[in-house]
Computed example of a mutant assay.
Amino acid sequence: MSSKIIYKIVPQQMWQEAQKTGIFTGAPIDIEDGYIHFSTADQVKATAAKHFAGQNDLLLVAVDAALLGHELKYEVSRGGALFPHLYANLDLQYVQSVVALPLGEDGVHLFPEL
């Protein structure tokens, strides 16, 4: 079975707090909306530009969507696209990788190859 990786952009300090408990409960917007917002590989750069423009100290967290079960739902969001939403806390055991998401000289985030 092939895995489908989804991504969450998280401020470093918020992620460090999650590492203390092994559970990421979400950013304030996630808690307000009732689910953790994720993006697919095709969506995450636009997410960074729209919601995290100019922000430093961010991390790109990769999660195998298949491990999240029925609490992960793809729902219509920005521009009518289907975005992954997790209706649960994220257990850090499902995280595949965490990499820095630095700003380039042009102020745009520098992404690894996805």
Rank of each mutant, 00 (worst) to 15 (best):
Q12V: 09
M1S: 08
D42N: 11
T21A: 08
Y74V: 03
A49F: 04
G22M: 06
D91A: 11
A41T: 03
F24S: 04
I36C: 06
H70M: 09
A46M: 12
G79P: 01
N89M: 06
V76N: 09
K4Q: 13
S97G: 10
K45T: 10
L101I: 10
Q12D: 15
P112S: 07
A41Y: 08
P84I: 02
I29R: 10
V63R: 00
L86W: 02
D30H: 01
A66Q: 15
G80P: 05
D30L: 01
F52L: 04
G80T: 04
P28A: 04
G79L: 09
G22W: 13
Q12A: 13
F24I: 02
H109Y: 14
E71S: 14
G104C: 07
P11W: 05
P84L: 08
N89G: 11
L67D: 10
L82A: 15
I31T: 11
K50T: 14
Q13D: 15
E75I: 15
V98Y: 07
V98A: 11
V63C: 08
L72M: 13
L72Y: 09
E113A: 13
Q16H: 08
V95R: 02
L82I: 02
L103N: 07
D91R: 14
D30F: 01
S77N: 14
K20C: 08
G80C: 07
A48E: 05
P84A: 09
L82S: 14
L59N: 11
E113P: 03
V76F: 01
A41F: 08
K20I: 10
Y35C: 15
D33W: 09
T25M: 05
L59K: 11
H37T: 13
V95Q: 05
G104R: 03
P11N: 07
T47P: 00
